Simulated scan of single mutants.
Amino acid sequence: MKDTESIFHRLYDQYHQDVFQFLIYLVKNRTVAEDLSHEVYVRVLKSYERFQGRSSEKTWLFAIAKNVAIDYFRKNSVRSSRNFDAFDWETEQLVSPTKSPELILELNDDLRQLLTALEKCTGDQKMVVIMRYIQELSIAETAEILNWTEAKVKTTQHRAIKNLREILTQNEKEASHYESRKMGRQQN
């Protein structure tokens, strides 16, 4: 037990910030991210003895965090809709039920626009973008965490970037149109 405890503390010290940041980008609520982070480490403590070292500890932790996040979104999906249809991770959007004002205020405008656009992507796309560009995981690590091939990660990443470009371009056009209409009213 003493060994498991020291391993747990090492993992927590080494990866807690990364896991917490990953979860907060997904759920956009500090309290929920803290709760989910706690759940990740509860699962780590319960299952470390079964960890076989086929992946790095970091990718193993992120895989657990991904599963905890999926469980959270499934639970919210069922609660909010009272519909017991299966949650389709690949096509459903992962939209946090609440926005964190403190998180949004801390971000610069470009990142805020990107995260808002990311809400319109599929769950797979959102997960890949967060892992690859925010958590800076490699394609191999991302594939391992998601239990995908590297080709699927690359394809999903490509589609996500294309989708984000389209969303951001559309948002820019709408903002420009709004500004020109606003200017026209002020001149009258």
Rank of each mutant, 00 (worst) to 15 (best):
K154N: 14
S96N: 11
S100F: 05
N147D: 13
G53H: 01
F73M: 07
L118D: 03
T149H: 11
R165H: 15
R82S: 15
D71P: 07
R159Y: 11
Q125Y: 04
S37R: 01
A33Y: 01
M131G: 09
D85P: 00
Q52P: 00
Y41W: 05
K46Q: 12
T142A: 15
A63H: 09
M127G: 06
V40D: 06
W148L: 10
M131Y: 06
S77H: 10
Q125E: 15
T31W: 10
W89D: 14
F73P: 05
I130H: 01
T116N: 08
T31E: 15
K28Q: 15
H158D: 09
L115D: 13
N147F: 08
K66Q: 13
K46Y: 00
N108E: 14
T59E: 08
G53P: 04
V44A: 07
A151N: 12
V27Q: 11
L111K: 04
E92D: 11
S77F: 11
K58P: 04
T91Q: 12
A65Q: 05
A151S: 14
Y48M: 12
K162V: 13
L146S: 08
W148T: 04
S80M: 13
T156I: 14
V42C: 07
A140S: 06
S100N: 14
N76Y: 00
S37P: 06
L105Y: 01
I134A: 13
N163D: 09
T31R: 13
L146W: 04
L61P: 05
S56Y: 05
E90T: 05
C121S: 15
S96W: 04
L105R: 03
L94C: 03
R30C: 10
D110Q: 11
V27D: 10
A140M: 03
T156H: 08
E49D: 12
T122I: 09
A140G: 02
L94S: 05
L164A: 11
F62N: 02
I64A: 09
A86K: 10
K126G: 04
I130W: 00
Q113D: 15
R132W: 00
V129L: 12
R132Y: 00
N67C: 10
P97H: 01
S77K: 07
K28M: 14
E49I: 00
E39Q: 14
Q93D: 07
F84Q: 09
R165V: 13
L114T: 02
I104A: 10
V128G: 00
V68T: 11
P101F: 12
R82L: 13
R54T: 09
A140P: 00
L105T: 02
T142N: 10
V42K: 02
E34H: 06
E106L: 06
I139K: 04
S55N: 08
A65M: 10
E144M: 09
T91M: 12
V68W: 01
A33Q: 07
L137F: 06
R82D: 14
T142K: 01
D35V: 04
I104D: 11
R54P: 00
E119P: 04
A69D: 09
K75V: 03
S100M: 09
S47G: 14
L45H: 13
R112S: 08
